[in-house]
Design a protein around this nucleic acid. Structure first.
Length: 914
RNA sequence: GGGCCCAUAGCUCAGUCGGCAAGAGCGUACCCCUGAUAAGGGUAAGGUCUCCGGUUCGAGUCCGGAUGGGCCCA
């Protein structure tokens, strides 16, 4: 046959027709789709029609810096949750939030305008800084295709939010849960502020390490006399020695009296060798002996008391721990038991104060040196050196921090831990081990230190008695600050005089004095974000249901937001603020290392968006199981892109196959189509349940498998002959097109929470066939219009789906067998296309199917030209090249006969082109 | 150092109550098609289920320990 004749027949077949492009060019396309959603208020309008509320409550990101992949992963998972619930009829309003106050922004601003800036300047600049990044992050999140009320987010620095905070904290105070107390807290001497546990980082640090002696003020032990008796003590913080008031011994471990160079030394037995070298062991005794024994302070003229503490270990040091109750958490606890003074020897900038006596006004690192020198002068130093250990550092300025006793405000939580646990157990934690994690963090936590000596935050409403230093919390003050904030005077606390904030006749409850100054503390930012549920409750009454249906954050938030929200909610509302909590993992590189600037393995979402599109980020987010850590690499991204392409091309082919706009709904569906509709129904059910369980990576896998193997590899492949060559509006072709349309609608609907851009783009290209009238956006659609399992498709389908499945469960293994044989024949160059084959099979009786129909089904399903069926157990009997036949130039199937075209094709030509 | 979690083909994951001769997709190799064409189809090769020990007739699955990685804490 000549080329020209071939061409002629190509013009007579019905190839897919669609203007849906194969290449997406997402970086350019996506902004247009976002524009479409925004201009037409698609999300807002989709919400309007729904009633039942489903609340995905946003944990506010911190408003500094551009978003990173962790943010993207988080918001995408939230978005998928929101969209899934939305399309299934829930009013799923996503109100994004931003966390604005706090140290990181304040430090950043300080860097720009100088440390000496006034609080009002700092606050003004901090506010600008946060606003700027809210704007930036908002655009970045929108660019990812995340639906949300971007124009009415909640912002922790907005006047009504700040007022809500003051109101809430005052309510907790009225409940008697807030107290002030001296207490050693993490203190950054560089930033001059107390830090929360969440604000310290542990890094390796070299510290001085000294072994030194406390002279005993007693010489008799268990009836024996030891003149020149000393306790051996080890420390890596010599500057705390001026604050020493005790020496702690473990009651259970063995101590010895060692004679060395005419001195008797007390030290733990197991450690003596490595500390002392050569010595004479004089006596062994248990630590409890030393309780209430008195030693002399090595520097000052005062005493140091022997005490007992379980935490003293025999693994490290000397088995005797120097206790400075004002400078260590455990020291403080021990001190409290023995009634020791809680004294700080440092001022807020880390320099010696009055208590430090001769070390006054030296920085604590200088005190280290001086103390060592002085101890050496007194001949009490045994050994000195350096010690490398993991030590707390300030999260912001990265400098080592200290423990320092200061007066702070606390929320009492120790006494109601059982209430927290009780409420934790009512929540569904996904994955399940989340409950272990939150329970252990809640159980381990001390009372909540809520005060910070900073400017960028919500002021704590109290004043200080100038005469006696009493801290006085006042509802009057709280109310005044709150009113000012609401009237736009957020900084009045720093601008007005103290008299403005207190009632006229206020007297100090402790000393009756009437001279006061304003408190200098702002609230811990975890209070801000932890109260977000309360803001949602009051401001978004129409769209937020308390407790929220789900909180979704990274696993670090068990200690952070999940906990702060839980504590505040249990105190204020008597229950947890969420019904379920989903946690996702962190992002690692291809070698499972965390991302860090120093490793140079940081991937930013904007790079991927620029290169490949936001949809690729969305699909990546569910490519791995997000409840564990997720990896990203070039390889993974290219696989994600391949999945996208496959899904896109499959959709494109289906759109094209409906390009001739079939309108007549077929009365009869062919068994092939019914079988694939059944596959669709199965997939719908599985995918729906995966969505419900938030197993989005399983959704992706099923969607991909369905598009690739079921549709592209089977259904659409076998339908090509019908679609291309059968007469339009012939029963077989219409049935096929109807099935395609049914599948396509459903498929687009199911992928829309994840592939939001692709689903919308495809929906806009969807032809209105079989009487289907489109809506403005796919997000206006509903399951009953889009899903097979939610519609009541013709009784034919319901009636015949089981028999169709039965038939195909027999045909599929035969097809696989045939493929094996055909592959061999191709490799041996016997055939090329499978249409060159004729096949002999045996099948059991299928009473539902007539012989002719059955034969045509099998030919179509096998994509061969001729099938002979005999009766028997299912088997592939013989596969041969169909050598006696000739190829129809139109449909390329082989047939026997004299005519140029096969019968079907000549029929179509005569009917369609006459 | 402590708590929690993870560990299955080169990559990403399935693997319910212990019965598996261990599955899928991607990638790879080879082949076909050229009427989804910067597409489409087929076949095949890939695994001592991280390691060591235990329970059991039987363990990827249960228990103990080790190693590596993550989060949180000290």
């Amino acid at each position: 046959m000549k080329e020209s004749e071939k061409k002629d027949f190509k013009d007579t077949i019905f190839l897919p027709r669609t203007d849906f492009p194969m290449k997406a060019n997402l970086p350019e396309l996506e902004p247009k789709i976002i524009d479409f959603w925004e201009k037409n208020k698609i999300y807002e309008r989709a919400l309007e029609t729904k009633k039942e509320i489903f609340s995905v409550h946003d944990g506010p990101p911190y408003a500094n810096g551009n978003i990173h992949l962790g943010h993207a992963l988080n918001k995408i998972i939230k978005d998928i949750t929101v969209k899934y619930n939305l399309i299934f009829g829930k009013r799923a309003e996503f109100i994004p939030g931003w966390d604005c106050h706090g140290l990181p922004i304040e430090k950043e601003v300080e860097k720009r305008i100088g440390k000496n800036a006034s609080p009002t300047e700092i606050r003004r600049e901090s506010r600008k800084y946060a606003e700027n990044f809210i704007g930036i992050q908002r655009e970045e999140f929108k660019r990812l295709g995340v639906f949300g009320k971007w124009n009415e987010p909640y912002i922790t620095m907005s006047p009504d939010y700040e007022a809500m905070i003051i109101d809430s904290i005052n309510k907790i105070w009225k409940n008697g849960r807030i107290y002030s107390s001296y207490r050693p807290v993490f203190w950054c001497p560089i930033c001059s502020t107390a830090l929360a546990e969440a604000e310290v980082e542990y890094k390796t640090k070299k510290s001085p390490s000294i072994y030194f002696l406390f002279p005993a003020k007693f010489s008799e032990i268990e009836g024996e006399r030891f003149e020149n008796l000393f306790a051996v003590v080890w420390t890596t913080t010599p500057w705390t020695i001026p604050a020493n008031f005790a020496l702690a011994f473990n009651p259970e471990i063995n101590y010895i009296i060692a004679k060395k160079d005419s001195r008797y030394l007390i030290v733990a037995e197991d450690l003596a060798g490595q500390i002392l070298g050569d010595f004479e062991k004089v006596k062994v005794l248990k630590g409890y002996i030393f309780e209430r024994k008195v030693f002399s302070h090595p520097l000052f003229d005062r005493e140091s008391l022997g005490v007992i503490a379980e935490f003293v270990s025999k693994e490290e040091g000397t088995g005797i721990v120097h206790i400075a109750p004002g400078h260590g958490e455990e020291d403080f606890e021990v001190g409290k038991r023995y009634g020791l003074p809680v004294e700080s020897v440092l001022d807020e900038s880390g320099r010696g104060n009055e208590n430090a006596k001769q070390y006054k006004s030296y920085f604590y690192t200088e005190i280290n040196q001086k103390v060592i020198e002085d101890i050496e002068k007194k001949n009490l130093l045994l050994k000195k050196g350096e010690y490398e250990h993991s030590y707390p550092h300030c999260w912001r300025c990265k400098n080592p921090i200290v423990f320092r006793a200061t007066k702070q405000w606390f929320i009492k939580v120790q006494d109601i831990k059982d209430k927290f646990i009780e409420n934790i157990r009512k929540v569904k934690w996904i994955p399940e081990w989340g409950i272990t994690r939150i329970e252990s963090t809640v159980m381990a936590r001390p009372d909540w230190c809520i005060s910070r000596q900073r400017a960028w935050g919500v002021p704590i409403p109290y004043v200080i008695c100038k005469n006696c230093g009493e801290y006085i919390w006042s509802e009057y003050t709280a109310e005044k600050i709150k009113q000012d904030i609401l009237e736009g005077k957020a900084d009045s606390w720093w601008e007005e005089d103290v008299s403005y904030f207190i009632p006229e006749n206020l007297t100090c409850p402790a000393c009756k004095s009437n001279s006061f100054e304003k408190g200098k503390d702002v609230l811990d930012v975890w209070i801000d974000s932890g109260l977000s549920f309360r803001y949602m409750k009051s401001k978004y009454r129409e769209s937020f249901s308390f407790p929220a249906d789900v909180y979704i954050e990274g696993t670090d938030q068990h200690r952070g937001w999940f906990q702060s929200s839980l504590i505040l909610s249990v105190i204020l509302e008597g229950e947890a603020p969420y019904k379920s909590v989903f946690t996702h993992g962190f992002i690692l590189d291809e070698f499972k290392r965390k991302m860090s600037k120093s490793l140079g393995n940081v991937v930013s979402p904007s790079d991927i968006i620029k290169e490949s599109g936001a949809e690729i980020v969305r699909v990546w987010a569910v490519f791995s199981d997000p409840s564990e850590d997720v990896k990203i690499s070039e390889k993974i991204l290219s696989e994600v892109i391949d999945i996208y392409r496959k899904v896109r091309n499959t959709i494109r082919f289906m759109l094209g196959s409906l390009g001739d706009n079939p309108q007549v709904v077929p009365e009869k569906l062919f068994p092939q189509d019914i079988y694939f509709l059944k596959k669709l129904e199965d997939t719908e059910k599985e995918v729906n349940s995966d969505y419900k369980n938030m197993e989005y990576h399983k959704v992706l896998r099923k969607i991909h498998f369905f598009a690739d193997k079921i549709l592209s590899g089977l259904f659409l492949d076998i339908l090509k002959d019908t679609l291309y060559c059968d007469l339009p509006e012939s029963p077989r072709r219409l049935s096929g097109q109807f099935a395609i349309f049914t599948i396509l609608k459903s498929f687009l609907f199911l992928i829309s929470p994840i592939f939001s851009f692709l689903a919308e783009e495809s929906y806009q290209h969807l032809p209105e066939v079989f009487g289907f009238k489109k809506r403005e956006s796919i997000f206006f659609e509903s399951p009953d219009r889009m899903l097979l399992s939610f519609s009541n498709l013709s009784s034919i389908y319901e009636k015949e789906k089981n028999s169709a499945e039965e038939l195909f469960s027999v045909l599929i293994p035969l097809r696989e067998k045939l493929n094996e044989v055909a592959d061999k024949m191709r490799k041996e160059k016997v055939i090329g296309s499978s249409l060159e084959l004729k096949v002999f099979i045996s099948l059991p009786d299928f009473p539902y199917f007539e012989a002719e129909l059955l034969k045509s089904i099998v030919e179509e399903f096998f994509i061969v030209s001729k099938v002979f069926i005999s009766s028997g157990e299912p088997a592939l009997l013989k596969v041969e090249r169909y050598s006696e036949a000739k190829k129809c130039p139109r449909c390329w199937k082989y047939f026997e006969g004299e005519s140029d075209l096969c019968r079907r094709c000549s029929d179509v030509i005569s009917k369609f082109y006459s």
